[in-house]
Design a protein around this nucleic acid. Structure first.
Length: 484
RNA sequence: GGCGCUAUCGUCUAGGGGUUAGGACGUGAGAUUCUCAAUCUCAAAACCCGGGUUCGAUUCCCGGUAGCGCUACCA
């Protein structure tokens, strides 16, 4: 068999959607599995809706996901003459004909057909235009589109790698447009010509193209070309089982990145939407997926995008992340939040690293480091209201915390064993539960009711910060309830 | 409307003519505890409906229903 060649062909009319990302991933996996080529092609023939900056954004998202391509990016807008040439060939060979109906006329007829409960297919009225009529219309300067002459009668069938045999009767098809009246190709012409020129062997794309495939096969045949293998992927839906769209929240890959999702977590999650590795593992790296990937294992039914599972998977990956990479990612987060300090790679480097590792066990996404973990990287943090309400309600707290601050300032050496002993001794003396002091101190030190183990926090923060933060909490509490 | 496709716990799925229908996320309970997370244990939770084939269908076939897709000079 010839070398396998696949492509991902997004159109730059929007950001890279998670559905598109999964299509790209499956193509990439398939290419890597078979040592084939993965081609990137930008389908920008819709001049009105395509935007150059979206091309950049799509490419950036693909890079972020680690989906590297072997050829391209190719732009359909660079190949316009080629499509026109093929269109011309098709016209000359009698497989296509000019149509002078205007979009307005067509739309009006469709509307009328709908009102009459008739099928709204194009009626083929320009199909039988005589040479005289043709040249007459041309002389009038009437613009024309080029339509494909769908064979009358019969059917086209193909064996989809995931859906099996699909058959469609030709009378269900209309004579679809190949070339718009402005000379630009439509999707169907563009894909077929490109996939042919780029020698694509397997077309792996969303199931929304399943019903379009027979049209394209007809084009291949009219061109006397071999038809590639098709594999359609089930669609990704929102929680309401509607096709995933903006109103469901984040759909763009970039939006997940901004939410602190790791690319490996997103890839893993997306891969499992419609595909199960043979060993049924849930956490699977792309490296593990490559040798196991097969189109035959792809599910036929649409899948609901479950953000909760992605979040879980992300936490899972975050916890396993090698130190060096995590440090780098957290640094980016802190920089974005204006929390990064040069000292973190100089005198405070050790504290920085230990803080990150402490937070790592509980983080669900990268954002957590700069948000709930803020107090580890800055003295400027506030007390989370829920935590204050829950852990700072005992009226003895101000004096207890003041005493704790004073005793901790005397503790030498300042190890977790010693600070813990100090706190527990104080609790015992004052006849209060150690938990009371521990929880209250946690809020004082981190501003959060949920944070790592207190003595680890104390250890990482160091004596000076611990003492001053406890004192700050005492002041806050006294200010809040001046009568006690 | 027409055509096409699909149908297993709430969600992602495994399985397949005879199974206690398996796993994961989520949910609930418990253990642990210093809050939370993690971890461990346990629990609830599914074969869309109706026919047929068969000794036996969740599995195969047909029909229905539902959902999705296509039905553009969008891709």
């Amino acid at each position: 068999m010839d070398k396998i060649r696949v492509r991902f062909a997004p159109s730059p009319t929007g950001f890279l959607h998670v559905g598109g990302a999964r299509t790209a991933l499956f193509n990439w996996l398939f290419a890597r599995r078979h040592g084939g080529a993965f081609i990137l092609r930008i389908e920008d023939t819709d001049v009105d809706r395509s935007k150059p900056e979206l091309v950049t954004a799509i490419i950036e998202s693909l890079h972020w996901l680690g989906l590297n391509w072997d050829e391209g990016p190719f732009f359909q807008s660079d190949r316009l003459n080629r499509y026109r040439g093929v269109a011309r060939e098709l016209e000359v060979s009698g497989h296509a004909y000019p149509c002078f109906c205007t979009p307005e006329e067509l739309q009006a007829r469709r509307a009328q057909a709908e009102a009459d409960h008739r099928p709204g297919k194009y009626d083929g009225r320009c199909r039988g235009l005589s040479e005289d009529e043709l040249s007459g219309l041309r002389e009038q300067g009437r613009p024309s589109a080029l339509r494909f002459k769908v064979p009358q009668g019969g059917a086209t069938a193909f064996d989809d790698q995931v859906f099996g045999r699909i058959e469609l009767a030709h009378n269900e098809l209309e004579d679809f447009v190949l070339l718009r009246s402005d000379g630009n190709p439509t999707y169907h012409l563009g894909v077929v010509v490109d996939d042919l020129d780029m020698q694509v062997t397997h077309v792996v794309r969303g199931a929304d193209h399943l019903s379009n495939t027979p049209k394209q096969i007809l084009l291949y045949q009219a061109l006397g070309a071999a038809v590639p293998v098709f594999a359609h992927l089930p669609l990704i839906l929102g929680p309401d089982r509607q096709r995933l769209s903006k109103r469901h929240g984040a759909t763009a890959v970039g939006a997940y990145r901004e939410q602190g999702i790791l690319p490996e977590a997103l890839s893993n999650f997306l891969a499992l939407l419609g595909w199960t590795p043979p060993d049924q593992k849930e956490i699977v790296s792309v490296e593990e997926m490559i040798p196991a990937f097969a189109l035959e294992g792809v599910s036929k039914s649409n899948a609901v995008f479950d953000f909760e599972k992605l979040a879980w998977m992300n936490a899972e990956y975050l916890r396993q992340l090698p130190k060096a990479r995590l440090l780098l990612l957290v640094r980016e987060e802190l920089e974005a939040a204006s929390l990064w300090q040069p000292a973190f790679e100089a005198e405070d480097r050790d504290r920085f690293e230990r803080s990150v590792q402490l937070l790592q066990a509980r983080a669900r996404n990268l954002k957590d480091f700069a948000e709930t973990g803020r107090a580890f990287f800055s003295d400027d943090f506030s007390y989370e209201p829920g935590a204050v309400q829950k852990f700072w309600k005992d009226s003895a707290l101000p004096s207890l915390l003041a005493e704790l601050a004073s005793r901790l300032s005397q503790t030498e050496p300042f190890t977790s064993a010693n600070t813990e002993k100090c706190l527990r001794d104080l609790a015992e003396e004052k006849q209060v539960k150690a938990g009371l002091l521990i929880n209250a101190s946690r809020v004082a030190l981190t501003g959060q009711g949920v944070a790592p183990s207190l003595f680890d926090v104390i250890d990482v923060l160091g004596k000076e910060r611990v003492v001053s933060r406890l004192q700050r909490a005492v002041e806050y509490l006294n200010a809040a309830s001046p009568h006690t």
